[in-house]
Design a protein around this nucleic acid. Structure first.
Lengths: 220, 220
DNA sequence: GATTGTGAAGAGCTTCACAGCT
DNA sequence: AGCTGTGAAGCTCTTCACAATC
């Protein structure tokens, strides 16, 4: 088993930003090496911070040169947990669910959609992203059979908690919640909220309070 | 002018969570008063933290009783910057843009969509959310005429920086960025990123590192 | 008895600065 | 000269604890 270093939340968040930068560098066949200064500039982070973050996941650089991009890219994907392929199910085949599926690179990032569920009889049976939409009652059996890791909650707020509980009871380990509502979950289930309303409110706040330091304008 | 207290980023983020709780309490005609403990439980925050946050925006409670819900709701909306109505323009009428418009309460939250732009000639002229889609070249004139405050960037990553610069040059004060790419912006322009890819990566990370403390699983 | 408001302590994160390596 | 790795300082945020209040 590899070293079990503690990666803090702020560090984890920045790692995803570095990854995005590295990904475009690697894809375009750019630089062999990148310095903490360069990486930081692209991600909006101080260079010393970048070095601390990279050190925390075991990334080693070369004095006077920087970090080897391909190698760092791999190390980073492993640290974030993208070395394995995650299976996800989508609950709610409405606008938000479909927008998510249309998102570029959803599949190439190590995530695989294995089932779609919806409440409305008019939608059940139709195909979304190549999958036949199943009725809600099929959730437990399908989740168990497929061994899905994540559940994507893209239903109206009033149904969100209920759907979340069904997913958790079916053995899901993490939830991506699009409903503008905080979910009450057992501690062993991870969850990340994506809430457009909240994003707008943050924008309103930041615009109102012309914040002096312009760092960390980045959200999820 | 009211007191210009500094509200920290973490506090601002929690305020939006409290607001969500309060909103549902007020809407359902629930409790007259709410204690810091109750509000905290619903939002996943410690009670002392809630009191500090509320104190920072001038919310005053009553010992032994709590905070008056309606009053607190108003104070909070004002602190976040929702007392005024913000005008926004959408650039990119694809899946993501449309999903956003379909989001519940988009209009009732103090935000108003005043224009939609798209690059594709096949989309220009069509109606989205009751607005005729305009070509990209119309951005500067329309933004200026409408006095829009925010720009919603819902275009492919390769176009995002370019679109952002056009919006900024047209007088936009804040950007909601859906492209999975960090935007380079002048300091006076606020920006909030909503990145599904990043959300998934955070979920992968949290699921991998079965984090002991389950707080702050909440994202944007 | 329940709950607020807050100073003080504690924990965590970021920045600084510089020795050491290439 | 350029860059990394890191101890130490500085700063911010959170938790604790309790007197004051209703």
């Amino acid at each position: 088993m590899p070293q079990t270093i503690r990666i803090s939340k702020p560090t984890a968040r920045r790692l995803t930003m570095y990854l995005r930068v590295l990904q475009s560098v690697v894809e375009t066949g750019g630089m062999e090496c990148i310095s903490s200064h360069q990486l930081g500039a692209a991600a909006g982070v101080a260079d010393a911070q970048v070095r601390k973050d990279l050190a925390s996941i075991g990334g080693r650089g070369q004095s006077g040169v920087g970090y080897r991009t391909r190698e760092l890219h791999e190390t980073m994907r492993r640290a974030i947990g993208l070395q394995k392929s995650w299976r996800a199910v989508l609950v709610g085949a409405g606008n938000i669910g479909r927008a998510l599926l249309a998102y570029p690179r959803f599949h190439t990032e190590g995530f695989e959609l294995v089932a779609v569920f919806d409440h409305a009889p008019s939608v059940v049976g139709k195909r979304v992203a190549g999958l036949a939409v199943q009725p809600m009652k099929a959730i437990p059996a399908t989740v168990r059979r497929s061994g899905a890791h994540f559940g994507i909650v893209a239903v109206p707020p009033s149904d969100a908690q209920n759907v979340a509980e069904i997913l958790v009871a079916s053995g899901i380990r993490g939830l991506l919640n699009f409903a503008p509502r905080a979910l009450q979950l057992p501690a062993h289930v991870a969850s990340v909220n994506v809430d457009f309303t909240e994003a707008f409110q943050r924008l309103a706040f930041e615009t109102t309070n012309q914040s002096s330091r312009s760092k960390r304008t980045t959200g999820a």
